[in-house]
């Protein structure tokens, strides 16, 4: 129930954020989708023990969140919800990988700790970039971008329909769950005797709804094709943004910026 409610709220929060009008929001959705995908692949392409050279990539989410006027709280909250499982898997690395790999004064740092740190930073980067994409673009525009980059139309339509009715059904489920909870006093979840009938009723209702939607579609001339309106055009702004982001990513990939900075400042250590 709490999960149902928080899911619904989370969906609405992100959806709200996507309606803002900032520079980032005004970019073509294709530009943002491509940049995000490149970013994620780039982050994961760093070697397992890479820590320092990942850090400059933090500029990307930080800059986007500032320019896109996104609040930190919901994104950090989401991150904390996702983190435990990944961190749990990551924590095995220090256990199984104890080869010393770097030295800090008299401390030997093992490969396990380094890779654990690397996983955590990668988690931070990939999670925030996905959330930022949707919070600055919105589901509908992402779908237009998907069809623009060649995703088959039935898939795009399926995502759009699913997303549209997710809002309706989450609300309906929330009410059903509330009705159940108001009359059950023992536990927080659904008692096993009600599993089939509760979910089954909801399912039948959902299928009836699908039938009504289909009829409504037929009434407006539906013949198996869903017309999607054309997407926004690329502008100079988009080209510049793409160029800037991609060159920054390449810079980060091939030059260890913190290392260079540090070497510059600490100079004589070598």
């Amino acid at each position: 129930m709490i999960k149902l409610e928080s899911t619904w709220l989370n969906l609405r929060t992100i959806d709200d954020l996507a309606t803002q009008k900032t520079f980032i929001h005004s970019l073509n959705s294709c530009t943002k989708l491509i940049t995000t995908l490149v970013f994620v692949v780039l982050v994961t392409s760093f070697s397992k023990y890479e820590v320092t050279s990942l850090l400059p990539l933090l500029f990307y989410p930080v800059a986007l969140m500032s320019l896109g006027n996104l609040p930190y709280k919901p994104i950090v909250k989401r991150l904390l919800l996702i983190a435990p499982f990944i961190v749990f898997i990551g924590l095995f690395n220090p256990v199984f990988d104890q080869r010393p790999i770097a030295k800090l004064g008299s401390f030997l740092i093992t490969g396990g700790w380094l890779s654990f740190l690397s996983i955590t930073i990668k988690l931070l980067l990939t999670v925030t970039s996905a959330l930022i994409l949707v919070a600055t673009t919105g589901m509908n525009s992402i779908c237009t971008a998907l069809s623009q980059i060649g995703v088959p139309k039935p898939i795009v339509i399926q995502i759009l329909f699913m997303y549209r009715y997710l809002h309706v059904l989450l609300e309906e489920f929330l009410k059903t769950n509330q009705a159940y909870n108001l009359r059950s006093f023992k536990t927080a979840g659904i008692h096993y005797k009600a599993w089939g009938s509760l979910l089954g009723q909801l399912l039948l209702r959902t299928m009836d709804r699908a039938q009504r939607i289909y009829q409504a579609m037929l009434c407006r001339g539906f013949d198996g094709k869903v017309p999607l309106l054309s997407a926004a055009r690329w502008t100079k702004k988009d080209h510049l943004y793409l160029l800037f982001c991609l060159s920054f990513f390449l810079l980060c990939r091939f030059i260890n910026i913190p290392q260079a900075l540090g070497t510059l400042l600490t100079g004589g250590f070598q």
Binding site: M139, L160, R164, I213, A216, R220, G221, F222, K225, P227
Partner: peptide
């Protein structure tokens, strides 16, 4: 059922 109000109102005329 369409993603935006505009798309929804346009659905019928486009199909016609």
């Amino acid at each position: 059922f369409m993603p935006t109000v505009y798309d929804d109102v346009a659905f019928g005329p486009l199909n016609l």
